[in-house]
Design a binder for these strands. Structure first.
Length: 274
DNA sequence: AGTCAAACCTGGGCGC
DNA sequence: TGCGCCCAGGTTTGAC
């Protein structure tokens, strides 16, 4: 489910709620969510710690605690991290409950249970391969067109597969890749190295633009996604291709096509995206 | 290097 | 109403 804009929206909603609070208790109802250290060490290492920062890297949430510990969370497809009051109804797939020093709770809900949590020394993320191998953050200033151009030129793979590769660029998923490719006028199956300089620039700008707009509209809520306070986002109302196969292109009116590209369902305009 | 299926899970939608 | 099948915002692993 959540891609960069959704995870960033969760981060922004949780940060003001959690900062300064101490975690008084941890209740784990689905042990498989806790990847490391052991369940006992995880609980013991968290209880009594205070939240000092809530950060994001790619699609990972990093809840930094006192004593140099960080709770690393990945929501995968259906994970939700929600700040609420103890009397609020328990959602069916609630797997972890953190009791907070102001009486509130932070609950982890995840229908498919693909999500994961790790407790590690802050910055010491080598044991999480997906986190330690992440590519650049597309919205940061250090993500430069010049470097993106050079990186694309070295790859023969389909542009869509490359943009979904988190070690190439962090944070894009199926929705925002399709949207960015549409905005840039690039067909998802084009070999990365075949893009002209003009196309590379258009894609670079489209990626940053679509992610920024996604954040601005507090994420895309198709099925399960909600922010840290249970609120849905609204970017689904602005999607131009994702989930619109068979409907007319908003730019040229041609019927949007659906195809498997890089093993993922992809929607694109065969006329606008060459 | 690139590509692909399968695996991890549950639930919603569709055809019959 | 029920059954079976396919699909889903992600990632990893292992095979060709």
């Amino acid at each position: 489910m959540p891609e960069l804009p959704e995870v960033e929206t969760v981060r922004r909603s949780l940060e003001p709620r959690l900062l300064g609070l101490t975690i008084n208790s941890v209740e784990v109802l689905a042990e498989k969510i806790i990847k490391q250290p052991t369940l006992a060490e995880f609980k013991q290492g968290i209880v009594g710690k205070q939240v000092v920062a809530v950060k994001r890297r790619g699609k990972y949430l990093l809840v930094e605690l006192t004593k140099g510990q960080t709770l690393v969370v990945h929501l995968r497809m259906t994970g939700q991290f929600i700040y609420c009051q103890p009397e609020q109804v328990h959602e069916k797939h609630t797997h972890v409950i953190f009791g907070l020093s102001n009486g509130s709770e932070l609950r982890y809900i995840d229908i498919r249970r693909f999500g994961e949590m790790h407790l590690l020394p802050t910055g010491d993320y080598g044991s999480i391969s997906g986190l330690s191998s992440l590519g650049p953050e597309p919205l940061e200033e250090q993500f430069l067109l010049a470097e993106f151009t050079i990186a694309l030129a070295a790859k023969q793979t389909k542009i869509k597969a490359l943009l979904l590769d988190q070690s190439f660029l962090a944070g894009l998923g199926n929705i925002y890749v399709d949207e960015a490719l549409f905005r840039a006028g690039v067909h998802p199956e084009r070999p990365a190295k075949s893009l002209s300089q003009k196309e590379v620039k258009a894609l670079y700008l489209a990626i940053r633009e679509v992610l920024a707009e996604g954040i601005e509209h507090r994420g895309t809520s198709i099925k399960d996604y909600v922010d840290g306070e249970g609120r849905a986002g609204t970017f689904q109302e602005r999607l131009k291709v994702y989930s619109r196969s068979g409907k007319p292109c908003l730019h040229c009116g041609h019927i949007l096509h659906k195809a498997k590209v890089a093993t993922r369902t992809s929607v694109f305009c065969p006329k606008c995206q060459k």
